[in-house]
Amino acid sequence: MEYRNGKIGVKGDPSKSMTTAEAGFMAFMGDNLPPGLEPGMDATRRFEPPNFVFPFGTHVCVVEVDAKTGQVEFVKYLAVDDCGRLLNPMIVEGQVHGGIAQGLSQAMFEEVVYDGDGQLLTGTLMDYAIPHAEQVPHYDLDHTVTATTVNPLGIKGVGEAGTIGSTPAVANAVMDALAPFGVVHIDMPLKPEKLWTAMHAKNGRAR
Protein backbone atom coordinates (compact mmCIF):
# COMPACT_ATOMS: atom_id res chain seq x y z
CA MET A 1 0.00 0.00 0.00
CA GLU A 2 1.06 3.55 -0.44
CA TYR A 3 -0.35 6.97 0.40
CA ARG A 4 -0.65 9.20 -2.67
CA ASN A 5 -2.58 12.42 -3.35
CA GLY A 6 -4.50 12.19 -0.11
CA LYS A 7 -5.59 8.58 -0.79
CA ILE A 8 -4.57 5.09 0.24
CA GLY A 9 -3.75 3.03 -2.88
CA VAL A 10 -2.33 -0.29 -4.01
CA LYS A 11 1.34 0.05 -4.88
CA GLY A 12 1.83 -0.06 -8.62
CA ASP A 13 -1.89 0.04 -9.45
CA PRO A 14 -3.08 3.64 -9.87
CA SER A 15 -6.68 2.47 -10.47
CA LYS A 16 -7.09 1.04 -6.95
CA SER A 17 -7.34 3.63 -4.21
CA MET A 18 -9.73 5.03 -1.65
CA THR A 19 -9.76 7.98 0.71
CA THR A 20 -8.69 7.55 4.28
CA ALA A 21 -12.27 8.27 5.29
CA GLU A 22 -13.57 5.48 3.07
CA ALA A 23 -10.97 3.06 4.39
CA GLY A 24 -11.76 4.10 7.93
CA PHE A 25 -15.46 3.64 7.34
CA MET A 26 -14.99 0.16 5.88
CA ALA A 27 -12.77 -0.84 8.78
CA PHE A 28 -15.34 0.54 11.23
CA MET A 29 -18.33 -1.18 9.61
CA GLY A 30 -16.36 -4.42 9.32
CA ASP A 31 -18.54 -5.96 6.55
CA ASN A 32 -15.86 -7.06 4.11
CA LEU A 33 -12.92 -7.82 6.33
CA PRO A 34 -10.87 -10.98 5.91
CA PRO A 35 -11.75 -13.72 8.41
CA GLY A 36 -10.19 -13.21 11.80
CA LEU A 37 -9.58 -9.49 11.37
CA GLU A 38 -11.42 -7.41 13.96
CA PRO A 39 -13.24 -4.23 12.93
CA GLY A 40 -11.74 -0.83 13.68
CA MET A 41 -8.71 1.13 12.63
CA ASP A 42 -6.64 2.68 15.32
CA ALA A 43 -3.08 3.10 16.39
CA THR A 44 -1.63 4.18 19.71
CA ARG A 45 1.69 5.85 20.27
CA ARG A 46 2.99 7.23 23.52
CA PHE A 47 5.25 10.17 24.03
CA GLU A 48 6.91 10.44 27.37
CA PRO A 49 8.53 13.80 27.93
CA PRO A 50 11.64 13.74 30.09
CA ASN A 51 10.17 16.26 32.52
CA PHE A 52 7.09 18.34 33.29
CA VAL A 53 6.53 21.68 31.62
CA PHE A 54 6.18 24.79 33.73
CA PRO A 55 4.00 27.50 32.19
CA PHE A 56 4.03 30.70 34.24
CA GLY A 57 2.50 34.12 34.22
CA THR A 58 1.52 37.18 36.19
CA HIS A 59 -1.99 38.56 36.63
CA VAL A 60 -2.68 42.09 37.82
CA CYS A 61 -6.12 43.26 38.87
CA VAL A 62 -7.30 46.70 39.94
CA VAL A 63 -10.61 47.02 41.79
CA GLU A 64 -12.60 49.69 43.52
CA VAL A 65 -14.58 48.76 46.62
CA ASP A 66 -17.55 50.89 47.58
CA ALA A 67 -17.02 51.48 51.30
CA LYS A 68 -20.72 52.18 51.79
CA THR A 69 -21.92 48.88 50.30
CA GLY A 70 -18.95 46.52 49.94
CA GLN A 71 -19.67 46.19 46.23
CA VAL A 72 -16.63 45.63 44.04
CA GLU A 73 -16.00 47.11 40.62
CA PHE A 74 -13.24 45.97 38.30
CA VAL A 75 -11.13 48.83 37.00
CA LYS A 76 -8.44 46.99 35.07
CA TYR A 77 -7.22 43.48 34.44
CA LEU A 78 -3.90 42.55 32.87
CA ALA A 79 -2.51 39.05 32.35
CA VAL A 80 0.87 38.08 30.93
CA ASP A 81 1.28 34.35 30.48
CA ASP A 82 4.00 32.16 29.10
CA CYS A 83 2.91 28.88 27.57
CA GLY A 84 5.95 28.43 25.37
CA ARG A 85 5.41 28.49 21.65
CA LEU A 86 1.86 29.59 20.75
CA LEU A 87 0.51 27.22 18.12
CA ASN A 88 -2.74 29.19 17.74
CA PRO A 89 -2.58 32.54 19.54
CA MET A 90 -6.33 33.11 19.15
CA ILE A 91 -7.16 29.88 20.97
CA VAL A 92 -4.53 30.58 23.62
CA GLU A 93 -6.08 33.98 24.34
CA GLY A 94 -9.54 32.43 24.47
CA GLN A 95 -8.34 29.93 27.05
CA VAL A 96 -6.86 32.69 29.19
CA HIS A 97 -10.02 34.86 28.92
CA GLY A 98 -12.25 32.03 30.02
CA GLY A 99 -9.91 31.03 32.81
CA ILE A 100 -9.78 34.56 34.18
CA ALA A 101 -13.57 34.72 34.29
CA GLN A 102 -13.83 31.39 36.09
CA GLY A 103 -11.18 32.37 38.60
CA LEU A 104 -12.59 35.79 39.36
CA SER A 105 -16.01 34.22 39.64
CA GLN A 106 -14.67 31.89 42.31
CA ALA A 107 -13.12 34.84 44.12
CA MET A 108 -16.23 37.03 43.92
CA PHE A 109 -19.45 35.13 43.31
CA GLU A 110 -19.68 31.37 43.45
CA GLU A 111 -20.82 29.67 46.62
CA VAL A 112 -22.61 26.45 47.37
CA VAL A 113 -24.82 27.12 50.39
CA TYR A 114 -26.61 24.47 52.47
CA ASP A 115 -28.99 25.10 55.32
CA GLY A 116 -28.74 23.37 58.71
CA ASP A 117 -30.73 20.39 57.44
CA GLY A 118 -28.39 19.82 54.53
CA GLN A 119 -30.80 21.32 52.04
CA LEU A 120 -29.00 22.94 49.10
CA LEU A 121 -30.07 26.58 48.91
CA THR A 122 -28.17 27.54 45.76
CA GLY A 123 -29.40 24.84 43.43
CA THR A 124 -30.29 26.97 40.42
CA LEU A 125 -28.76 29.89 38.55
CA MET A 126 -31.37 32.10 40.25
CA ASP A 127 -29.32 31.70 43.46
CA TYR A 128 -25.90 30.47 42.40
CA ALA A 129 -24.20 33.45 40.79
CA ILE A 130 -21.97 33.07 37.79
CA PRO A 131 -21.07 36.33 36.10
CA HIS A 132 -22.72 37.74 33.00
CA ALA A 133 -20.94 40.02 30.56
CA GLU A 134 -21.45 43.17 32.61
CA GLN A 135 -19.97 41.64 35.76
CA VAL A 136 -16.51 40.96 34.31
CA PRO A 137 -13.94 43.45 33.04
CA HIS A 138 -12.16 43.69 29.73
CA TYR A 139 -8.94 41.70 29.95
CA ASP A 140 -5.67 43.04 28.55
CA LEU A 141 -3.41 40.15 27.60
CA ASP A 142 0.18 39.81 26.63
CA HIS A 143 2.61 36.91 26.62
CA THR A 144 6.23 35.97 26.74
CA VAL A 145 7.51 32.95 24.82
CA THR A 146 9.91 30.70 26.68
CA ALA A 147 9.91 27.50 24.69
CA THR A 148 10.27 24.39 26.77
CA THR A 149 13.01 21.95 25.86
CA VAL A 150 11.15 18.89 27.08
CA ASN A 151 9.06 18.47 23.94
CA PRO A 152 9.90 19.03 20.29
CA LEU A 153 7.25 21.73 19.80
CA GLY A 154 8.38 23.88 22.72
CA ILE A 155 4.79 24.04 24.00
CA LYS A 156 3.40 24.28 27.51
CA GLY A 157 -0.16 24.08 28.79
CA VAL A 158 -2.37 27.16 29.03
CA GLY A 159 -5.84 25.86 29.85
CA GLU A 160 -5.57 26.54 33.56
CA ALA A 161 -3.37 29.63 33.45
CA GLY A 162 -6.30 32.01 33.75
CA THR A 163 -7.99 30.25 36.65
CA ILE A 164 -4.73 29.93 38.58
CA GLY A 165 -3.77 33.57 38.21
CA SER A 166 -7.07 35.34 38.51
CA THR A 167 -8.43 34.06 41.81
CA PRO A 168 -5.55 35.35 43.95
CA ALA A 169 -5.11 38.47 41.80
CA VAL A 170 -8.74 39.46 42.39
CA ALA A 171 -8.76 38.46 46.05
CA ASN A 172 -5.51 40.32 46.72
CA ALA A 173 -6.78 43.42 44.92
CA VAL A 174 -9.83 43.49 47.16
CA MET A 175 -7.74 42.89 50.27
CA ASP A 176 -5.42 45.70 49.21
CA ALA A 177 -8.41 48.00 48.88
CA LEU A 178 -9.49 47.05 52.39
CA ALA A 179 -6.04 47.44 53.91
CA PRO A 180 -6.75 50.96 55.23
CA PHE A 181 -9.51 49.39 57.31
CA GLY A 182 -7.06 46.95 58.86
CA VAL A 183 -8.65 44.00 57.06
CA VAL A 184 -6.15 41.30 56.14
CA HIS A 185 -8.23 38.27 55.25
CA ILE A 186 -11.77 37.37 54.19
CA ASP A 187 -12.78 33.92 52.99
CA MET A 188 -13.95 33.68 49.40
CA PRO A 189 -16.33 34.38 47.80
CA LEU A 190 -15.81 38.07 48.57
CA LYS A 191 -19.49 38.91 48.77
CA PRO A 192 -20.28 42.57 49.40
CA GLU A 193 -21.81 41.93 52.79
CA LYS A 194 -18.60 40.28 54.05
CA LEU A 195 -16.52 43.24 52.88
CA TRP A 196 -18.96 45.73 54.34
CA THR A 197 -19.04 43.89 57.67
CA ALA A 198 -15.24 43.69 57.81
CA MET A 199 -14.87 47.40 57.09
CA HIS A 200 -17.44 48.32 59.70
CA ALA A 201 -16.12 45.92 62.34
CA LYS A 202 -12.67 47.49 62.24
CA ASN A 203 -13.64 51.10 62.11
CA GLY A 204 -17.11 51.23 63.49
CA ARG A 205 -18.18 53.18 60.48
CA ALA A 206 -16.83 53.10 56.96
CA ARG A 207 -15.39 56.35 55.72
Binding site: G94, H97, G98, G99, A101, Q102, L125, A133
Partner: peptide, 17 residues
Protein backbone atom coordinates in the same frame (compact mmCIF):
# COMPACT_ATOMS: atom_id res chain seq x y z
CA UNK B 1 -22.93 45.07 24.06
CA UNK B 2 -22.27 43.74 27.55
CA UNK B 3 -25.55 45.18 28.82
CA UNK B 4 -27.43 43.81 25.80
CA UNK B 5 -26.15 40.30 26.52
CA UNK B 6 -27.06 40.45 30.20
CA UNK B 7 -29.59 37.67 29.69
CA UNK B 8 -27.09 35.16 28.31
CA UNK B 9 -24.55 33.31 30.41
CA UNK B 10 -21.29 31.89 29.05
CA UNK B 11 -19.00 29.72 31.12
CA UNK B 12 -16.05 29.39 28.73
CA UNK B 13 -15.09 32.60 27.01
CA UNK B 14 -15.05 35.16 29.81
CA UNK B 15 -17.16 37.17 27.30
CA UNK B 16 -14.12 38.95 25.84
CA UNK B 17 -14.37 37.39 22.39
Amino acid sequence: IRAGLEGNLCRCTGYEN
